[in-house]
Structures are given as C-alpha cells and as structure tokens.
Design a protein around this nucleic acid. Sequence first.
DNA 1: CCTACCGATCGGTAGG
DNA 2: CCTACCGATCGGTAGG
Lengths: 213, 213
Amino acid sequence: MAVRGARKKVADKEHYHHGDLRRALLDASLELISKEGFAALSLREVARRAGVTHAAPYRHFADKEALLAAVAEEGFRAMTARMRQDMAREPTPMRRLMACGVAYVLFAVENAAHFRVMFGPHFTRPLAPSDAQEAGNSFLILVDAILEAQRAGEVHEGEPHALALTCWSLVHGLASLWVDRQLEYTGMSMGVETLAREQTRMLMRGLALTPID
Amino acid sequence: MAVRGARKKVADKEHYHHGDLRRALLDASLELISKEGFAALSLREVARRAGVTHAAPYRHFADKEALLAAVAEEGFRAMTARMRQDMAREPTPMRRLMACGVAYVLFAVENAAHFRVMFGPHFTRPLAPSDAQEAGNSFLILVDAILEAQRAGEVHEGEPHALALTCWSLVHGLASLWVDRQLEYTGMSMGVETLAREQTRMLMRGLALTPID
DNA sequence: CCTACCGATCGGTAGG
DNA sequence: CCTACCGATCGGTAGG
C-alpha cells in the first residue's frame, strides 16, 4: 500500500527543524539588524534566533558575508519592484520620475535593515556580481525615467547619467538621514513621505529665483 | 639646586608611553576604520595600534561608545570649520550656499572615517549631548545660508528649514554614496568635487524645463 | 541539522 | 600605564 511518493519531500524534511531555514535565517538577520544594530549580527546569534544550532547556517551560507549578500540581493530586487510599481501608476514622465524617487525613500524607511545592508560600509570586498547587477538595474530605472522625461520635453538637456545621479543623491541622502535617525535633531516634524515629495519637487523646480549662469 | 618645577609636567609623564595617548587612540581608531572597516574596531585593537596594552584606553575613555563619541565630536567641529572657511571666500549668498554644500561633500570624502562615525548607524543610544550640539551647529550654518540667500532675493520663499533639509539630503546622499563606494557601479568617472558642484548647481536651478505646478 | 570541540578575540576589572 | 585574570562570544570544523 505505498502512497507512491505523495508528500515525499515533506517527509524527507521531517528531521529538519524548519521547512525553510534559509528564509528563517534571512528573516532573523533582518530582525537582528533592525532591533540590535549591525554590530550585533553574528552567524551564531542569527542561528539562535532561527531556533537552530550555530553550525546549521553553514548548510545555506558559506559565511556571514554570503548571508549579507543574499539580504542585499533580496533588497535590491524588492526596491526595484517597488519603484516600478509606484511609477506605473503615474501618467506623465515627470510624475514617474518623482514617484521613482519617493518610492526609493519609502522603501528605505519601510525596510531599513535591507537598506543598511544594501548600502552600508559593511563589505570589505566589492559587491557580489549578482548584487552589483541588481544595484545596476535599480540605477537604470532612474536613468530611463530621466531619458523619458527628456524626450517628453519635461526635463532639460544634459547627460542623463549625471542627472540621474543627482536624483539618486537627493533621495539616498534623505533616506540615509532618516534611517540613521539624524533628522531628530533638526526639529522637522513632517512625515518622511511628505519630505520626500517636497524635496523631489524642489529638485525638479530648483531653488533659485533667477537662472544662475 | 632645585629647578623649581621646570619641565615638571613632562617629567611626570615620562613613565607614560605617550605624550598624548588620547590623541593617539583617536588617530588609531580613525586609521582602523579607514583601513579595516567599522567591524574591525575594538578597544583592544585600537590599544594595540597605539602601542599600549588593552587596559590603557580606559584611562581616557569609559568604553568604546565614549571613544566614538569623541571622534564624532571632533568630526562635527572640523566639518563646521571647513564649511565656514570655504563659505568665507565667496562673494554672494547663493555662492556661499553652494560652497557650503561642496565643502560638506569634500569633508566627507577627505575624512571618510570621521564621516562614518558621525552619521553611521553605530550608536544604539542617541548622540551624546556635545555631539548633538555640534551636529545642530552644522545644520544651523546651512539654515543661515538659506536665510541669507532668501533675504538677498536669490532663493525663493519657503520654510528655511525645509529648504535647508533638501540641500542637506543632496550633499549627504552624494557624500554617502561616494564614501560607501556605490558610485563605482554607475560608470561615473568625474571627480567628486565636480559632481558636488554640478549637483548643487542643479538643485539651485532645478531640472524641470517648465514650472511643475 | 546536531553535538562537541578548537583557538582566538573581546570587554572589563583588580591591583599595583 | 602594565600584568594577570575573568567570563563570554565568535568563526569554523569533525563527525555523525
């Protein structure tokens, strides 16, 4: 009366502690970074929080760097998706460009641990190739938005990469200041989404009353 | 034939390893952060690099957090001085505002270790009072520059703190991206000073061809 | 995925 | 500022 392999994979896994330890380790890492800070992150503590012994993570990640690389890759993918999704709702190139920036900031604020791993000074080595690719994709979304706005005559001429980098600096700065709690000393009481919209709009419009040149 | 206290303080210090261990510990910390990254920073390693045993630093700093607070305070002071100095050379409010932003970026790039300690997510507690004050002073320089430019009719009306925060986001973002080596994946070959000048100018001028509203 | 074990480093203190 | 010492944690591996 063999069941012919039904639920075989599940049965095979029954002597494992988790159905998906890899996922549990990633989640534990994110929670640890959020709650205790980066300095508290060790493979052993991650294992502890995932409910396994400290040797178990090595089945999934060669070392701490590999675990962090996986977190970063996941972060870049999610951020890219978030930007694309928010942009898709907007009717004009300029509005899509601004939505892209706001989405960047909101992603960072809502996923601070991911954001820190993605951009923190935590890797001595360059990004893993897959991370670098995902990071590059994110930047290309921005460059494309700039190009589209230029073609529509909504953004002035200029090297698209330079314009994109300026947008990136602005939203990355706001996101970083917020995530690192630096804005608490300035007496700003606005929500971060309002700040992001306002600042993005200011970059588009400029601060000067009259042309500078 | 008593020498009446001449060089007494020097003599008293002769059984100390350093003339100024506090300074040596700060320098060792900065070098360690620059070369090995934040994760490598421990009081013991700092002591080692300063050429003393690992118990010596406790004569000057209660713990690691206190050492980092001292580094941060020094950083804020130096950054404030740098901004003031570079602004003093400029003849108009708008040019002073831009010089302030460029100085921020150049300080960060030239003092990456200080910058990381000042703004990194490394403190679980809020900044020490003296650090918070120094940080506040830096921000006030920016707010004052905005106010001055508004009074001169060079920058449009608007809440000065909000405008200042926008400027801060931009330069903080560029500085962070550069310090954390994120720009290496975008194929930008310009020097950071050129980028800072270009981006600051773009914020002043705006990217939009026509008013957005 | 676990137990058991390794060498190394760390923060911190006593006591001089 | 040093020596000597404490308990704790860490990365990593053997071996099942």
